[in-house]
Design a binder for these strands. Structure first.
Lengths: 202, 202
DNA sequence: GTCTATAGAAGGATAGAC
DNA sequence: GTCTATCCTTCTATAGAC
């Protein structure tokens, strides 16, 4: 997606907000037009249909999310430092885009083939294999137990993403006792240690 | 909700499926009627509106989810055994209701006050405090480090729920290499050890 | 490019017969 | 209780003037 005009950018920003918050089915073209300060006709002039507008937004957001996710892993630090950096960067990123995981995960669950259109299978496999290779190195060098890499990978991202997926529930469970942002903030520094304790050789 | 007639049960079952899979905004009354083998008029005869039908379904599903979640913690086993039992039971439950976490979490994020209508604040606090008290005991007796109980609680449920929230993404990331159900199955036995390693005193 | 006006489709809800 | 037929509102999309 290349955004050529100011109006197009405004539409795109408005659509991003609306789709992120309410999903494809819940978002309304009228609301998007209003947020962009235009009318529906102009909306359709730029993006021919709701579906096409959604595709454009989804492609951009999914790419952002996955690039950030795997980008945080692309360095040659030892695992503990890598995790510290990952959680710090990744959670900071999610704080700025709190609806992103819910949006991307839901829409992919609704329509799995959407993702394949954006990332080729090869590119995905490359990113995952890169992470796995790094974990293999750690195992080889005896820094961590010979863990199941798939499971560990899931655990690592579960711990950063889950609170954003479950925010409403968590706020209700803990009520006035705890502040959501404080809880999130602490995770930036504590999760790396949590993981390391779980997997390191003793 | 007390279901008085067969038709009412069929509607309720059909609505449960539809809402779980597509959410409130995405589900269609026509589709629910069809799945229940009736027409829309009859649907409205039993449940006056989509909103009311949704409320009934949501109340039942949210109650199911939270009862199961906290129910798995209600025993006096030592932490490691408790976690083994929790993950085994909870993940088995989620395998039977794979859409439940996505549905409940999303709808609460969309509309947080819905949950308060179902569970009173006191009841919620009681369930959480009960779990926290158990963790305090473990800390007192020196079995585990003096961890942040809120964080640990989040981590424990994140690890069982996240794969179901992210199923579409995970299936794409791992593609033909891994089978989703196999991955889930292994978590029933491995997660308790993962947590214990992370938190136990050495 | 942007607007007003409106067409057209889809979805939720109701009237009334049986 | 259950159906057919239909209404009404909401939403997406387009026509046509400027």
């Amino acid at each position: 997606m290349t955004l050529k005009s100011i109006t197009q950018e405004k539409i795109f920003a408005a659509a991003t907000q609306a789709f992120e918050e309410k999903g494809f089915a819940g978002a309304r073209m009228q609301e998007i037009a209003a947020r962009a300060g235009i009318n529906q006709a102009l909306l359709h002039y730029y993006f021919r249909s709701k579906e096409k507008l959604f595709d454009a937004v989804f492609a951009a957001l999914a790419a952002t999310m996955f690039d950030k996710l795997f980008g945080c892993f692309s360095n040659d630090l030892p695992l503990e430092r890598k995790l510290q950096m990952f959680y710090n960067e990744h959670i900071s990123f999610l704080q700025e885009h709190p609806h992103l995981p819910t949006f991307v995960l839901n829409e992919i669950n609704q329509n799995p083939q959407r993702l394949a259109k954006i990332f080729g299978a090869e590119r995905i496999d490359l990113m995952v294999q890169n992470v796995f290779r790094q974990l293999d190195d750690e195992i080889q060098s005896g820094n961590i137990r010979p863990v199941d890499k798939t499971q560990l990978f899931i655990n690592v991202i579960a711990l950063s993403m889950f609170p954003f997926l479950a925010r409403g529930v968590l706020e209700m469970l803990f009520q006035q006792n705890v502040n959501f942002n404080d809880v999130i903030e602490r995770r930036k520094t504590e999760l790396a240690q949590f993981i390391m304790n779980a997997v390191k050789n003793k």
